[in-house]
Structures are given as structure tokens and as C-alpha cells.
């Protein structure tokens, strides 16, 4: 563990990305205490304005402050990203552990079901689920959560198969440890590294999917701001206020870029041999 921390502090990309991400998270958490305009407050006399001292990034077609809407959008994106991945990781861990550890028909049943979920293009399955459940933030979380379950189930199952027959598991068994103890205390801690890397990358994927659903009007519902929704709205005003497109795109790019780079860096740290060319 200490060597991992050392690797981490040496990896400049990981450090820089972590600082950016922590900064975004802190701003999002404390946004209510910052001197910002309310993201949904309309100011008719200030429609479609450029950046000014009053509105840092300008305003949209209702005179709402773009900067505070982008920060609110970040809050929603992170909320959807993190909670949907928690759903997929939670269910994926349980299914993967069962499939990998108990094998036999548990394995066949679970893995064939995962194959079926994998047979749908991701965004299409998410769309179909949201189409049935109806649009909204909660259903978006649920849909993205379900879509990502197979990735984690496969990952956990593969890792379980890798360690299941190692000596330390055998010795735990011969000491009389119960299956649940072996699964959660012996096996799971040994597969946290790949899980962490995959979760990080899944969060950026989930944010992309959420933004796409919101762009199509099926994710986060107006007037609540979301990056995808803001970009969709901006299209009619792009000539009058190009900032309405550029700023949410930039916010999304920075956030997802940082998460992706961070995930890549984590991968290098956990697999020092694989990281180099």
C-alpha cells in the first residue's frame, strides 16, 4: 500500500487530475455558500448577454446566469455519474462474486444474462429503459446503473477466478472460514485495484450518457440545468450567444478529461509493468 502511495505521489498526471477533480467537487458541494446567482432565476432584462462583472460567463435566453447553471450542471452530472456507478458496482460485485466463486449453474445463469445485456448498444438500452420508466434524473441514474452492471460482473468474476485457487484462500478455507467471509474479507480486498480503475472510467462514461439523455430531453428535466440540456437549448441561440454552447462543452470536456486521465493514471499505478510501453 505504501509503495502505491509513493507511486501515486510520483505520478504527476494523477496528482494534477486529482487536484482538478477535488476542486470541482469542493465547488459543487459548497456552491450554495458561494455568492452566485440562483441557477433557475430568470432576469428578463439581461437575456443572452456576454460575460460581464455581474454574470461571469454571460446569460442564457431567459437571462439566467450561465456560470451558476454550469456549476449546478456539474452537481447533477457528478450525482448521476457517481450514484449510477455505485448501483452497477454494488450489483456487479455481488453477481460477479457468486458467478466466479460458486461456479456451476450460478455462473452460467449470471454470465449468460450479462451476455444478453451486453448485446445491446449501451446508449440504446439506456434509452429504452428511460423510455419505459419515463424521463427524469432518478430514472436516468437507474438506467445507466443497469446498463453498466455487466462490465463489473465480468470484471469481478474474472478476478475471482484468478485468485480463487490461490493458497491463501485455501488456508482460510481450512481454518473453517465461511463462504461469505472468504468472499468479502479475503477475495474482495484483493480485487479493489481493477475495480477502482474501472469505476473511475465508468463514472466518466455515465456522465457522457447522462449528458446525451439530457440532450435528447429524456434525462434531467428543465428548468433544472444539466450540461447536455444546456447544449440542446443553446442551438437556437448559437449566433446570438455562442457562449451558451462553448461553456458547457468546456466544462464537460475538462471534467471528463480529468476523470479519464485519472483513471489511466490509476491503472499505471496499480499495474506498474503494464503502464510502460
Amino acid at each position: 500500500m505504501s509503495s502505491m502511495l509513493q507511486n501515486f505521489s510520483k505520478n504527476k498526471t494523477a496528482l494534477i487530475c486529482m487536484i482538478i477533480l477535488l476542486f470541482i467537487i469542493v465547488v459543487v458541494i459548497f456552491s450554495e455558500f458561494l455568492p452566485l446567482h440562483s441557477p433557475n432565476k430568470m432576469n428578463k432584462e439581461y437575456r443572452l448577454q456576454g460575460p460581464s462583472s455581474e454574470f461571469f460567463l454571460g446569460t442564457d435566453q431567459f437571462g439566467r446566469d450561465l456560470f451558476s447553471r454550469i456549476i449546478s450542471g456539474a452537481k447533477i452530472s457528478l450525482l448521476v455519474g457517481i450514484s449510477s456507478v455505485i448501483i452497477s458496482v454494488g450489483i456487479g460485485i455481488i453477481l460477479g462474486l457468486i458467478a466466479g466463486y460458486f461456479g456451476k449453474w450460478y455462473d452460467s445463469l449470471i454470465m449468460r444474462t450479462m451476455d444478453i445485456l451486453f448485446a445491446f448498444p449501451e446508449i440504446l438500452l439506456a434509452l429504452a429503459i428511460v423510455a419505459a420508466l419515463g424521463p427524469g434524473t432518478f430514472n436516468t441514474i437507474l438506467a445507466i446503473g443497469i446498463v453498466n452492471i455487466p462490465v463489473f460482473t465480468r470484471l469481478v468474476r474474472g478476478s475471482v477466478l484468478g485468485v480463487k485457487n490461490l493458497e491463501y484462500i485455501e488456508s482460510a478455507k481450512s481454518l473453517g472460514a465461511k463462504d461469505t467471509r472468504i468472499l468479502f474479507l479475503e477475495i474482495l480486498p484483493n480485487i479493489t485495484a481493477p475495480l477502482l480503475v474501472q469505476s473511475t472510467l465508468a463514472i466518466s462514461g455515465a456522465i457522457l450518457t447522462e449528458s446525451a439523455l439530457s440532450f435528447l430531453g429524456l434525462g434531467v428535466q428543465p428548468p433544472n440545468p444539466s450540461w447536455g440540456g444546456m447544449i440542446a437549448e443553446s442551438r437556437r441561440y448559437m449566433e446570438l450567444a455562442p457562449g451558451m454552447i462553448i461553456w458547457p462543452c468546456l466544462a464537460m470536456l475538462i471534467t471528463i478529461f480529468a476523470i479519464n486521465l485519472f483513471g489511466d493514471a490509476l491503472n499505471d499505478i496499480f499495474n506498474p509493468l503494464r503502464g510502460k510501453n
Partner: peptide, 14 residues
Amino acid sequence: MLGISIPNFAIGTL
């Protein structure tokens, strides 16, 4: 890396 960090609709709109 930038290319995989931006959704297609954002590229299209830009």
C-alpha cells in the same frame, strides 16, 4: 484523449 472525453452531440453542435 480529448476525443473520448467529449460527447458526439457537443462536437456536432460546436
